[in-house]
């Protein structure tokens, strides 16, 4: 549903951030972009979301699907309640769909928090609010820029489960930027390893989703995916 071809980009007066990058995202697929800081991961997402102009290359969508973006920082409005924060996409589009808002809040387990303010929530709850706000836009594609990087390990595991559940229930396609290769290996249908503005290679983890979370993480498919990714990152292909 998304094709990115030969994307090159540089910030004004800066060095090239992307250098002929290509990638695809299929329907109901989770693709991770993994790489060291400054390799251009976030820039790819921002170009795809039209927050930055395409430099050279092409970004092509099939059917122009509804997009939503989740940042590393929850980026909530501190002056607005959780319900008001979640209904932001609707408010800006001129029609607030209360059902969609409630469904999004219930999907992330925050139904009884809707009248609170962000400052009254924990870090994990704020991140859930941010995900709920993205869901309230009823997106087909979720672009996520290191969304769980600031969370502790336990919360991060919980959010990973939540994300996989949402992907199945809502048929989402997810482009996920992370610098955690474990997270990438666990969440993704495909992991794209990036370096210096290019895709160095991809890894397909093939986890057995019928297993429980702990069993999936202990499976040989997971460990093999992690070692393939790590080999790709360090430069020697297996």
């Amino acid at each position: 549903m998304l094709q990115v071809r030969d994307l090159s980009f540089q910030y004004r007066g800066g060095e090239a951030v992307l250098d002929g990058l290509s990638l695809d995202l299929a329907e109901n697929e989770v693709v991770s972009l993994l790489g060291p800081s400054g390799c251009g991961k976030s820039t790819v997402l921002r170009i795809i979301a039209k927050l930055l102009d395409v430099g050279k290359g092409a970004v092509t969508w099939q059917n122009d699907p509804e997009l939503a973006f989740v940042f590393q920082d929850p980026a909530l409005m501190p002056w607005a309640t959780i319900a008001e924060n979640v209904s932001l996409p609707g408010r800006l589009n001129g029609k607030i769909d209360q059902q969609a808002v409630q469904a999004a809040l219930s999907a992330v387990g925050l139904t009884d928090m809707d009248a609170r303010f962000p400052a009254q929530l924990s870090g994990g709850q704020r991140m859930r609010t941010s995900v709920a706000r993205a869901l309230a836009a009823s997106p087909k594609v979720l672009l996520m820029d290191e969304p769980f990087a600031a969370l502790d390990e336990i919360l991060r595991f919980q959010m990973n489960e939540l994300l996989l559940e949402l992907k199945e229930k809502r048929g989402l396609s997810i482009l996920f930027v992370t610098h955690s290769l474990y997270e990438a290996a666990y969440l993704s249908d495909r992991v794209l390893v990036m370096d210096q503005g290019q895709i160095k290679g991809d890894v397909i983890p093939k986890l057995d989703r019928s297993l429980g979370a702990a069993d999936q993480r202990a499976s040989s498919a997971f460990t093999s995916a992690v070692s393939s990714i790590s080999a790709l990152m360090s430069g020697d292909r297996q």
Binding site: A49, L51, D73, A75, L76, M77, L92
Partner: peptide, 23 residues
């Protein structure tokens, strides 16, 4: 990031002022 979200969801200049800049 919030500013980017307003852009992503196509906020008008007035909405931007009312819901983001003023608060």
């Amino acid at each position: 990031n919030l500013s980017d979200l307003f852009k992503l969801y196509g906020a008008s200049p007035l909405q931007r002022f009312r819901y983001l800049l003023w608060p």
